[in-house]
Design a protein around this nucleic acid. Structure first.
Lengths: 224, 224
DNA sequence: ATCAGGCGTGAATAGTTGTTCACTTCTTCA
DNA sequence: TGAAGAAGTGAACAACTATTCACGCCTGAT
């Protein structure tokens, strides 16, 4: 044994791996999952195509890790927002609003992570991603139910439905076009959050109040 | 000119075209869009691969027509259900329930039409399909708003959100597994319809009533 | 019956990308 | 410094299917 990985090398390897993942993420954010092709990603990361395969066994694996990473970041932001809220209903509102803001601030990426056609099978990591986020929302709904703020219901199904509503209306093909305008964007977030809260049984008047309170903090948190 | 298409030939051509489309539809219903490949579809339709191209200029066109056809059928069923309802709120409930039942009774097909990755670009026909259905739902929401049953709102956005909720919760990757059991299926339809109605502002108690009324007719209509 | 022309065929083609691997370059340590 | 082994390279490969097209068959008019 005349060669051992020195600390410096280990760091370089890790950096390269991150660079490749970051390149993939950038590509996805710019052109959707379709733009995440091995050769272009390699160029972005300043490595050769073959090198990508030193770090990821396949494109599917690369994309799966990308999905996991983005999902992890998203989940953390949702938790932060919800935990900062004063009560279960506010927490739910905060969580939903955060999802909406997130999705809107990275539309292409979100679409890619969630639903864009990919030539390799990434269904398991997409499933895991959805499960995490949906589980978090379900937990928040559940908390509100337990607090007596909402009627009893199938929280898992409700959470899934809420996410479907958010995604479809904000990044789906029928999503409004001109959401670059910050005012329109805020309106869309508020409208959809309101729908979501009412869907799980929040009274209209109360829901409107929660929505207003939730929007500003969510935007700040996601920006951070 | 010593050759003219005789009536018999015209009919045969039309029949073949329908056979190819039907084969594509069957394939999609069985194995999703992934199963809609030219060669297998041709086999199903009892023609050669090349023949498919006598009728459809490309796979994209074939799938686009498939989407349009399924969408057309679906829209008709939704209209029928809604028109048969006694009032605007019932009509909305009927429309939503019908979408749910449709989607559940042909899960693979619905998923294929809506969101499954396809190797060719079918985004425009998918967009059109969504637009039609969403427009119909929006119109029904609008009618209920005008009748004073619902608060004023962005009906287009609401309709899109509702469809997103239905699709994600019923045929998305997190959809409950065992929806083959008719009782579970009915429960799922009811739960989701209830969410949808509350989302647009129907009061909880009233929504529950509407849901119950809407389920049975919808199932019958879709079966027809 | 015969020919003119569209219709049907299916093997061959083509284009796209993920993946491999023989080779080169770099790093470590005696 | 040089040997040993790891990491990097990128051109070549592989696999998958949509699409083509030269050919033969069938249909319809004379």
């Amino acid at each position: 044994m005349v060669y051992r990985r020195t600390h410096q090398v280990v760091k370089r390897l890790a950096a390269r791996r991150s660079a490749i993942l970051a390149a993939a993420r950038d590509a996805a954010a710019e052109g959707g999952m379709a733009a995440v092709q091995i050769a272009p990603v390699a160029v972005r990361a300043n490595v050769a195509a073959g090198t990508v395969y030193r770090y990821f066994p396949s494109k599917a694996e690369l994309i799966s890790e990308l999905i996991a990473e983005v999902s992890r970041d998203g989940l953390a932001a949702i938790r932060r927002a919800a935990d900062a809220a004063p009560g279960p209903s506010s927490a739910l509102a905060a969580a939903v609003t955060t999802v909406a803001v997130q999705v809107l601030s990275q539309r292409k990426l979100a679409w890619g992570i969630l639903a864009e056609p990919v030539d390799v099978d990434v269904s398991v990591s997409r499933l895991a991603s959805r499960r995490e986020i949906s589980g978090e929302i379900a937990a928040r709904i559940d908390a509100a139910v337990r607090a007596g703020h909402l009627p009893a219901q199938d929280t898992a199904l409700a959470a899934t439905a809420l996410l479907g509503a958010l995604h479809e209306s904000l990044v789906g093909p029928l999503a409004p076009e001109n959401l670059d305008d910050p005012a329109k964007l805020r309106d869309a977030v508020q409208t959809v959050t309101l729908l979501a809260l009412r869907a799980v049984g929040v009274m209209d008047a109360r829901a409107r109040g929660l929505v207003v309170q939730a929007v500003l903090p969510a935007k700040a948190l996601v920006g951070a």
